[in-house]
Structures are given as structure tokens and as C-alpha cells.
């Protein structure tokens, strides 16, 4: 098969697959941000049962293989009467998984805000919400841009696992092409690798730039 024949046959499916990967990466990362914020606010709240739930949540997702999380989402949610299509199931499973890591990253950001900053805020009369909004969160976010960038990249790569529950994203598409002997194993590998790198190198660059631009000098 020549390159032009290869492109004739696979250009369409590759674009569809790349689009699916991209959509899944962004949707799941959005879910992860929301989940991370909710879980971390439980984790740092003064209410003991919420703290416990957040701790368990994080421990569960950090120590269970993503593949198992996907299968549990597929079958477990089904048995709970929540049946969704493959794509939303994958987005939610991946979002919860990355969300657990997100919660830990956000927590480390909050813990990195010195107590003195909060005391200074309180002593000029800021209330709890103002203190959060004006001092703690802006500072916490700036210290975790780098780690959040790493999470974005990890989450992007983890979209590949969605191929195991029938989401036809890039890695799933690569599997189909690998099975087409005429396509050529090396060619498939190079094309898929190039597409992933095309997405991930700029992402790494953007987060490094954000980090350099917004991180706090102390």
C-alpha cells in the first residue's frame, strides 16, 4: 500500500479518531477539574464525614487501575440503573480518575499558601469567602499550574484506555489499522505517534509558559 492509498483509506477515520481523542481529553479534563474542586473542598472542610469521603475517593482512584475503573463504570453504573453511551461513560470514568489526582494537586496548592497570608488577610478584615477568593485560591492556583499541566498530559494519554470500552479514539483506530497488514505496522505507529506528539508537545509548551508567567516569586 502506498502512502496515497493509505491516506485515501485512513484519512477520514484518522481525523474522526483524533477528534474523538481531543473531545474526550477536554471533556474528561473539565469533569476532572469540577470533581477535583469538589473533592478538595470536602477534604479541607471542617466536617469529618466529608473529609473521610474525600480521602477514600482519592485513595480508591489513585490505587485502582484505570482499566478496572472503566469496566466498573461500564458494568457497575449499569447495575445501578445508570446506563449511558460509551463516550459519556468513558468521559465520566476518566474525569473521576483524573479528578482524584486533581484534588491532591489542588490540596498541595492550598497547603503551599503560608498561614501568614491568611492571617494578614483576616487582620485587614476579610471574611472567609473574601479570603478564599482574593488570597488563598489565587495563590494556590498559581503554585499548581505546572502539576495541572502534567495532569492534562497524563489525562490526554489516558484517553487511550477508552478504546477498551469501544470508544474509537486514536489508539483504538491504531489497533484497527495494525490489524490491516497492508497498512504497514511501522507506518501506522509513526502516524499515530506523530498525531499524539502534535497535540502533546504544544500542550506542554503552553503549560510551561503559563507557569513561568503566573507563578509567584517568594
Amino acid at each position: 500500500m502506498s502512502w496515497s492509498e493509505f491516506l485515501d483509506k485512513y484519512q477520514g477515520p484518522l481525523i474522526d479518531a483524533a477528534w474523538t481523542t481531543l473531545r474526550l481529553a477536554f471533556v474528561s479534563f473539565g469533569i476532572a477539574l469540577v470533581v477535583g474542586i469538589i473533592v478538595v473542598s470536602f477534604r479541607v472542610s471542617p466536617i469529618p464525614p466529608l473529609v473521610r469521603v474525600a480521602t477514600w475517593f482519592v485513595a480508591f482512584f489513585r490505587n485502582t487501575p484505570l482499566l478496572v475503573v472503566f469496566f466498573l463504570a461500564l458494568f457497575g453504573l449499569g447495575d445501578l440503573g445508570l446506563v449511558y453511551d460509551f463516550f459519556p461513560t468513558a468521559a465520566v470514568a476518566l474525569g473521576l480518575y483524573t479528578g482524584a489526582y486533581m484534588a491532591e494537586v489542588l490540596r498541595s496548592g492550598i497547603n503551599a499558601v503560608p498561614q501568614g497570608q491568611a492571617e494578614a488577610g483576616r487582620s485587614i478584615g476579610l471574611g472567609f469567602i473574601q479570603l478564599m477568593r482574593l488570597i488563598v485560591i489565587p495563590q494556590a492556583v498559581r503554585t499548581v499550574i505546572g502539576p495541572i499541566g502534567n495532569l492534562f498530559v497524563a489525562n490526554f494519554k489516558n484517553t487511550a484506555v477508552a478504546s477498551t470500552i469501544s470508544v474509537l479514539e486514536l489508539t483504538g483506530q491504531s489497533q484497527r489499522m495494525f490489524n490491516d497488514a497492508a497498512a504497514g505496522v511501522w507506518r501506522v505507529l509513526i502516524v499515530i505517534t506523530a498525531i499524539y506528539l502534535l497535540f502533546l508537545f504544544p500542550a506542554g509548551y503552553v503549560f510551561r509558559w503559563l507557569d513561568a508567567r503566573f507563578s509567584i516569586k517568594r
Binding site: 501568614g116 497570608q117 492571617e119 487582620s123
Partner: peptide, 13 residues
């Protein structure tokens, strides 16, 4: 009530 700290505690951001 104004308060001045040993370690200044200016808002770093």
C-alpha cells in the same frame, strides 16, 4: 485593628 507581623506577610500575588 491594624496588625503588623514579624514576617511582613504581604500578599505575594
Amino acid at each position: 485593628v491594624g496588625m503588623v507581623f514579624q514576617s511582613f506577610n504581604l500578599f505575594a500575588h
